[in-house]
Design a protein around this nucleic acid. Structure first.
Length: 104
DNA sequence: CTCTTGACCATGT
DNA sequence: AACATGGCCAAGA
């Protein structure tokens, strides 16, 4: 019998959700939390930080509600994340993602 | 069991 | 629009 914490289960849900975001689009932490009925958006970040693989689950497509990038991207930092998003075709406004067009 | 920290968000200045 | 503060809930020490 395994100790299944609430977030432990939601972890897969969040990762799956992120995996459904098409290339060139992004989503926000709050959006995920709301759709998956998480108690708080902070958990989304916590879960994503325990992300097993950025290649399997494009966690770089998750941004702040304002379009700002995460302060501590697990695979190199926000700058790496930004570069990846631009590379995938996501439009940027200064340091923020253009949610107006790229929000999934 | 208590305290601290954390990939956030909404509101106020 | 940018920066600072409070509140939210859970996991780790």
């Amino acid at each position: 019998m395994k100790k299944t914490s609430a977030t432990e289960i939601h972890r897969f849900e969040v990762l799956e959700y992120v995996a459904t975001v098409p290339t060139g689009k992004v989503t926000t932490y709050g959006r995920i939390a709301k759709d998956l009925l998480l108690p708080t958006p902070r958990l989304v970040g916590k879960i994503l930080h325990t992300n097993p693989d950025s290649n399997t689950y494009p966690c770089h497509r998750v941004v702040f509600s304002d379009g700002k990038l995460a302060p501590s991207y697990a695979f190199g930092g926000a700058e790496i994340q930004r570069k990846k998003l631009i590379k995938e075709g996501v439009l940027f406004k200064k340091e923020k993602v253009d949610l107006k067009k790229c929000l999934y």
